[in-house]
Design a protein around this nucleic acid. Structure first.
Lengths: 237, 237
DNA sequence: AAATATCAATGACAATTATCATATACGAAA
DNA sequence: TTTCGTATATGATAATTGTCATTGATATTT
């Protein structure tokens, strides 16, 4: 089992639009929310189903996916601890356009639609913070769309390794002792993230390894040379 | 020259978040907005520049594009009359991540940031309608991302023809006399929309023509067999 | 109307990427 | 530990798509 998180001292809440809630509303959030532990591989919501509330990831990692007609999967984005998910469908008044699945054991909090909407109406700042959140999701989606349209697989793979590393690394790493690594995604999931075949990812990773850009230990990928990876990814900065 | 549109009787306003404004605010919107005619090919804003306000397309068509490092263009979306654009950057507090260019002679209205934000704060409904708008943009982007990742070029082309036809066709066509056609995009722009080479588009269009799915007259593409096009596009419904 | 530039069309070829087959390594479960 | 299933790895080959070159069509300018 797991310990149900308390909203009061929840670090992830302070990164989300719920940071604006105070007093009785914060208490209500804490009471009304339903938390669950999802084991790796378990599904949270399904594409085409109707949203009844909103999710917040307290701990773990979630993938948001679409399934093509032939059954192939595409990973639209990765949700990190502190992120809301399932927002778009609820706000947009549409069914889910994608599914969500835990890629690590994850603690997920759920708040029903009515309470959530009540809060949005009561707290204009919460609405604004949601607008900003949606804007950033859109920016990320448009960026990824551009990569898929303009870049060859090799560049997309390097780019996604850097993207994942940025997402996965801790917020604070003062001693700079974090070893840049990716271990929550299988090769197949990496392929599904960048829109290519599993074998192509494996082959390119072997090349990256030969070129000393990365090291591979089982399913863990260590990023050894980030500047060069950026060159391969065709990223300026 | 052109006639500056009046917000009062502006049909496009009623489709946008500005529908909530009343009385003196509607008057202020009408006075503060700045309208311009952009000839086909003219640019409205540039990638990486800082937004100072928001745009509303009164008449015409706009493409939103990203440029790859090698100079290749990707069309992120098409803006139709009545749509706001430049919203994401302003709301998200970031620079533009894409450029906008008229693909037909277009009348564009502009409202400065301060007035716009003032309205959002004063009218909570406007904020909610913006949230919904952003949600729908995100849904479209994620959909297109999925197509780029999962579908071969042939399917994407059929899909985009149907998508454009839906966008371009008039809201009301009671006599059902509209001839489904696409004429605002060059072959190169079609290619940039679906992430492929111009020659590939031209070749596939020739095939579609041979299969009686479309007819071609110069740069105009007529959709002849929409059900079959849906099959080629691998769309269910 | 002639000249020029731009766009569409098509062929030949090369590069990229996917698919299929198979071997090997790894991890979970008995 | 052994076994079994799954993930990784690599080779061979085919399919898709991109690039370069050329021609023809169309539109725009002088």
């Amino acid at each position: 089992m797991f310990k149900k998180p308390e909203c009061d001292d929840c670090l992830t809440r302070t990164k989300s639009c719920f940071v604006h809630l105070v007093n009785e509303d914060l208490i209500e959030l804490n009471e009304k929310k339903v938390c669950n532990l999802y084991k790796k591989g378990q599904n949270i919501f399904y594409e085409a189903s109707k949203p009844t509330g909103i999710f917040c990831l307290n701990e773990g990692k979630i993938k948001i996916t679409k399934i093509g007609i032939d059954g192939k999967e595409h990973i639209v984005r990765i949700v990190m601890a502190g992120d809301l998910f399932g927002v778009r469908a609820l706000i947009g008044g549409r069914n889910y356009a994608s599914s969500s699945t835990a890629i690590e054991d994850s603690i997920v909090c759920y708040l029903n639609k009515d309470t959530f909407l009540k809060f949005i109406i009561k707290y204009p700042k919460m609405a604004h913070s949601l607008m900003t959140f949606l804007s950033h999701l859109l920016e990320e989606s448009d960026y990824k769309m551009g990569s898929l349209a303009l870049k060859p697989v090799r560049e997309r793979l390097a780019e996604s390794l850097l993207y994942l590393n940025n997402k996965f690394k801790p917020d604070f790493d003062l001693q700079n002792q974090y070893t840049h690594q990716i271990n929550s995604l299988s090769r197949e999931e990496l392929a599904n993230l960048i829109g290519t075949a599993t074998e192509t990812v494996i082959r390119l990773l072997s090349e990256f390894k030969k070129d000393k850009l990365i090291a591979i230990e089982g399913k863990i990928i260590f990023l050894l040379d980030i500047p060069k990876l950026k060159k391969v990814a065709n990223i300026l900065e």
